[in-house]
Write a protein that binds this DNA or RNA. Structure first.
Lengths: 202, 202
DNA sequence: CCAGATATGTAGTGTTCGCTACAGATGTGG
DNA sequence: CCACATCTGTAGCGAACACTACATATCTGG
C-alpha cells in the first residue's frame, strides 16, 4: 500500500492565485478555466485538492483571513478605541488600493449577490466579515471597561459601524476610488468614534 | 405603412419585476429564464424591448434611480447637514430592510465584481452611486456656505463618507442585518457629521 | 380587405459552464 | 520488480447560458 504520486504544485501558491481571481471577478464571475490557468494546474488537480469550486473559494477565504488576521491583531492592539478605529480604517485605505492586489476586499468582491445554486456564498463571506466585527466589538467592550469610551457608548454598535465603513470603502475602492479619497472617508469616520470617547484629562 | 402589433405587456411593470430579480441575484446571477418568468414575457419580447441583458439592467437602473430620486430630493431638503445625513442614513436603514424589496441596495447588489464580458456593469452601478454622492456634496457645499458646517469641513469628503456608509449598510442588510442594527450604524455615523457642524447658538 | 409593420410563442442555435472518465505517469511498501 | 495508491494531462461529458430564426398573430394606413 504505497502513498501514491506526490502533488507537483504548491497548494498555498496556487491558492494565492485563485484568491486573486475570485477577488477580481467574484465567485460566479471566476471560471474554472481562469482559475486553473492562474494556478498553473489542470482541472482534475483542482478538484482532487479542493473538491469543487466552492471548496476552492472557502480555502481561498481561509488563506485570506489568515493573512489578514495578523494585521487585525495589530489593529486591536492600538491603545484606545479611537486609535483602533483610525489604525483599522487608515490601514484599509492603504490595503484596498494596494496595486499588488485587486482593489477592494475579497470578503466583499467575492460575491454579494449570487445566482441559484450559490446562495450560500454571500453568507459565507458575511460570516468571515462578522469575525472581524466580533474582534472589534470585544476590543471596544474592553475600551469601555477601561473608561476609554463613554458610559453611553455601545461597543457592538461601534464595531458594526466601523465594519460597515470598511465595507463601504471596499466597494468604493473596487470602483476606482483612489487612496486619498479613502483616507478622507476614514478620517471623517474616525470622528464618530471620537465622539463616543470619554473626555480624557489633558 | 401600419404601426404594427401593439405590445401586450406593460414595460414599467415588467421592469419592476426585472429590477427585483437583479436586486436579489445580481447581474450575472440573474438568468434570462428567471427574468422572463418574473416579467411574464418570453425572451423575444425582452430582446425586442430592451436589446439585451445589459440593456435590461440599464433600464432597470434608470427606473430604480428615478424612484429613488424623489426620496433623495426629500433628503437634501433637510434643514442642516446633520439632518441631511440623519434623514439619509435612517431612511436607508428602513428602505434596505423593507420586506417589500430584496434586502440591500440594487446599486450594490447589482454587481460589485463581474466576469469577463461584463466588466462595465460594476462601473455602471458606480456611476449611479456617484450621482447620489454629487447631490450630497452640493448640499454640503451649501451647508458650509450657510455657516452650518465648520470652515475646516470638506463637503466632498463628507459626501463620500455618507455614501460609503450607505453602501456598507446595504451590504450588511443583504447579508441579514436587521433594521435595528442598521439604525445603530446610522446613529453612530451621523455623529461624524455632527462633529463637522458649526457650534450653533442655543 | 389588403399591404406593411411590429409583437408574440415555439423551439431551437452555438457557446460556455462546472465537472469528470480515463489512461498514463510517479510515487511507496513488500 | 510487483501490487497498490495517488496525481496529471487530454479530452469531453451533460446542463445551462444568452440569444435568435421563424411562423403566426395583431395592429395601422390606404
Amino acid at each position: 500500500m504505497g502513498m501514491g504520486r506526490p502533488r507537483e504544485f504548491d497548494a498555498e501558491m496556487a491558492l494565492d492565485q485563485a484568491m486573486e481571481v475570485f477577488w477580481r471577478h467574484g465567485y460566479e464571475g471566476a471560471t474554472i478555466a481562469q482559475l486553473t490557468e492562474a494556478m498553473g494546474i489542470n482541472p482534475p488537480s483542482l478538484y482532487a485538492c479542493f473538491g469543487n469550486k466552492e471548496g476552492l473559494l472557502k480555502a481561498a477565504l481561509d488563506r485570506y483571513t489568515k493573512l489578514r488576521g495578523a494585521w487585525m491583531d495589530e489593529v486591536v492592539a492600538a491603545p484606545t478605541a479611537r486609535a483602533v478605529a483610525e489604525r483599522m480604517l487608515m490601514g484599509i485605505a492603504e490595503k484596498q488600493t494596494d496595486p499588488a492586489n485587486p482593489p477592494g476586499c475579497l470578503l466583499v468582491q467575492g460575491g454579494i449577490a449570487c445566482g441559484t445554486g450559490s446562495e450560500n456564498v454571500p453568507f459565507e463571506l458575511a460570516a468571515r466579515r462578522a469575525q472581524n466585527e466580533d474582534q472589534l466589538r470585544d476590543r471596544f467592550v474592553r475600551a469601555k471597561a477601561e473608561g476609554d469610551l463613554k458610559e453611553s457608548a455601545d461597543p457592538a454598535a461601534l464595531a458594526r459601524y466601523v465594519s460597515a465603513v470598511s465595507v463601504g470603502m471596499g466597494v468604493m475602492a473596487s470602483s476606482g476610488a483612489d487612496r486619498e479619497a479613502l483616507r478622507q472617508v476614514a478620517s471623517v469616520a474616525v470622528q464618530a468614534v471620537e465622539a463616543q470617547s470619554a473626555d480624557r484629562p489633558q
